[in-house]
Design a binder for these strands. Structure first.
Length: 670
DNA sequence: TTCCTAGGCCC
DNA sequence: GTACGGGCCTAGGAAA
């Protein structure tokens, strides 16, 4: 175990799993709980290399390396390796060595590339195509999976693969990473060094967020789940009574087969639902549209099946019931209220019993989703579970935050996704601050709209940005003073504003407004967008300017240096990329600075999550005023292009679902 | 198993 | 003359 002389050291660890967090249970896929490192390898610019199994001696060697301030240690995806090293007792937030990350480099330099794994980088950055055998480990796992399972009763992982294979692979990894690093480093320096630096510093903030986690009231999740199961059973009974038996048509190798369903109607199956509609004599009317396929092409796929989404269901029922469905969605009614209201309205307006079908299916799907997407994970995935003196079971959920997953620059979140927790339904009741803490939600006001106004340069909009921009736009479109704008007109203007940012045409804007309960014909849509562009001509000018920039250079650069490479036929997306991406990069800068300030001043307060334009801080009462005030200051200081950035604050004392303005607790920050 | 489709939640 | 943006997760179904 020679200590390397080179100053650039590429490091790669191999582990026996992907998720280092453990609640002691084997997960649904049969993986071991609590992934750990079992070996690692290095490679330096002097050509030195080595492979080591994890031992106390090799870990000591590693610790020395990572705390050597003369070294630059390069990882492919540093967040993963460093989190695993945390579980080996490394103080990963205070390493002395400089950390670099080739995956992040690739993502900032080649943002629209479809993949950033090492094999792809080897092909695309180094131009090496002899990589077919580099998935040896995966191949071995596939070939020996069943045999291994019979012998050991579990799935094999990387640490079960013959060590020569692992060694070959990990040495190839570190060497390849080194050459990729050499190439990408100069590309980063030429194109976006500051952007990369922010992302690099963000590695540590992300690690901290993920390791610290969010506190969950598991008892509450269990209560809510139990209630949801009850609701589900009730709905299932009603549905079975209403529709069974049904005939279901399914396809097998192109041949249609008809099947009788007599025992259980499945509201989650389109075929069952179609069967139920037929049974009740409701003519099927609406079909799904083809969707754009994922990346890089304008091909469409799918479509042509009977559609049973909420908007279709609303059109299948009569007006009063459609109103119930809309109100329920807007106000987040619990299932019981929805249920009562549906039956009440059917009674009151003397509607056919068959009208029960669409609302019951909708509610069934919603409740089912809450159970499988939220409650099950909240109950099963927490670490550090214990019962508090109050008798409630609590735990910590470690979700993932990925700073590089979105091409625009936004964060994404997974396992579970903390960025799409329903605002109005049960799950937010399960998220609670730790003992003696409060959660502060710091939210940039209308940030994307601000950048939209900035890029367009429209003076009327700019003047209204701190008031109510949608109302201002409505006043212009409908030629009336702001005070006389009706709430419906404001809603239309808001829909149009967002539609324009997202690059929608008149027809799509009309359709979207219609779906939101504001019936609009394509013609009316064209009138509105026509008026919009006459009143705000700079918006179209901006779209065109981005388009010609894209055509000329093949990419457009946002104010933080992030480049968007896309085919010119998608130039309608660029306005959105610029608004969304600039906001995202602003947010990242703010987050890094808030996080580093918290560390530098030894604060107990932590950033626990971020939702696109919002940072959530968990603060002890002793420092909440100082920390929140400072965080707002940091966020607002990043004012760009003379657009004031304003931050609004909400506070959570008990449950996320009970988020309020600080003023309602008798204090404020401004 | 794996892949695709549909549906639905967030900003 | 044309185009709503970016995510994540789940269940069902069809082909292998």
């Amino acid at each position: 175990m020679v200590y390397p002389k080179g100053s650039i050291v590429v490091l790669d660890t191999e582990t026996n799993g992907l998720n280092p967090f453990s609640n002691g249970k084997i997960d649904q896929k049969g993986n071991l709980p609590g992934a750990r490192i079992f070996c690692f390898a290095y490679f330096t610019e002097l050509g030195e290399y080595g492979f080591m199994m994890k031992t106390s001696r090799s870990l000591a060697w590693l610790k020395r390396l990572l705390n050597d301030k003369r070294k630059t240690v390069v990882f492919q995806n540093a967040k993963f390796d460093l989190e695993l090293l945390y579980f080996e007792g490394f103080d990963v937030l205070n390493l002395k060595a400089h950390i670099d990350d080739t995956m992040i480099m690739s993502k900032v330099v080649r943002s629209t590339a479809p993949a950033h794994d090492l094999i792809t980088l080897s092909k695309q950055v180094l131009g090496k195509y002899d990589t077919d055998d580099k998935d040896e480990i995966v191949i071995w796992l596939k070939e020996h999976g069943n045999e291994f399972k019979k012998l050991h009763g579990r799935k094999p992982n990387f640490s079960d693969v013959p060590i020569e294979i692992v060694k070959r692979r990990v040495l190839w990894d570190v060497e390849t990473t080194f050459y990729v690093y050499s190439k990408l480093k100069s590309m980063v320096e030429e194109t976006c060094p500051e952007l990369y630096e922010t992302e690099r510093r963000l590695i540590f903030a992300c690690i901290d967020l993920e390791l610290y986690g969010v506190k969950i009231d598991i008892s509450r999740a269990k209560e809510l789940r139990a209630q949801a199961i009850k609701d589900l059973t009730a709905i299932q009974n009603d549905l079975d009574k209403l529709v069974l038996p049904i005939q279901v048509t399914r396809k097998k190798k192109g041949i249609e087969i008809v099947e009788q369903i007599t025992d259980k109607f499945n509201p989650g199956s389109g075929q069952h639902v179609a069967g139920a509609f037929n049974k009740l004599g409701i003519p099927l009317l609406y079909k799904t549209k083809p969707k754009k396929s994922k990346k890089g092409s304008d091909k469409k796929s799918g479509g042509g099946n009977w559609s049973f989404d909420e908007y279709a269901m609303i059109r299948y029922v009569s007006k009063p019931l459609a109103g119930v469905i809309r109100d329920s969605g807007e106000d987040g009614w619990p299932a019981s209220k929805f249920y009562d209201e549906v039956y009440r309205v059917i009674e009151e307006y003397d509607l056919d019993e068959q009208e029960l079908l669409p609302p019951l299916i909708l509610k069934y799907r919603q409740v089912q989703k809450m159970i499988s997407t939220y409650y099950d994970h909240l109950i099963n995935d927490c670490t550090d579970t214990h019962v508090e003196s109050s008798g409630r079971e609590v735990g910590i959920l470690h979700c993932k935050f990925n700073a590089q997953e979105c091409m625009t620059g936004r964060f994404s979140s997974s396992q579970i996704n903390l960025q799409n927790i329903p605002r109005l339904l049960g799950p937010r009741e399960c998220f609670i601050p730790r003992k003696g803490r409060r959660n502060y939600h710091l939210d940039y006001d209308q940030v994307e709209m601000r950048f939209f106004v900035h890029f367009s340069g429209d003076q009327t909009m700019a003047a209204a940005i701190d008031e109510d921009i949608h109302r201002t736009v409505a006043a212009e479109i409908y030629d009336k003073p702001k005070e006389e704008v009706t709430s419906e007109q404001r809603k239309r203007a808001k829909g149009t504003n967002f539609g324009i940012i997202y690059g929608a045409g008149a027809a799509t804007i009309a359709e979207t407004l219609t779906k939101k309960g504001l019936p609009t014909s394509t013609q009316e849509g064209m009138q509105v967008t026509g008026k919009y562009h006459r009143k705000f001509p700079s918006v179209r000018r901006t779209t065109k300017a981005f388009g010609s920039e894209l055509k000329e250079y093949g990419y457009v650069t946002n104010p933080f240096g992030r480049r968007y490479h896309i085919p010119t036929q998608f130039s309608y997306k660029m306005l959105n990329y610029m608004c969304q991406g600039t906001s995202a990069d602003l947010m990242k800068r703010a987050m890094v600075e808030v996080w580093e300030w918290l560390r530098a001043t030894n604060k107990i307060s932590r950033i626990i999550l971020t939702v696109h334009d919002e940072i959530v801080l968990e603060c002890p009462r002793t420092e909440e005023l100082e920390v929140v005030t400072k965080a707002i200051e940091i966020m607002e200081e990043l004012e760009m292009f003379n657009i004031p950035m304003t931050v609004s604050v909400d506070v959570v004392t008990k449950r996320w679902s009970e988020k309020v303005k600080p003023s309602s607790l008798g204090f404020s920050f401004k």
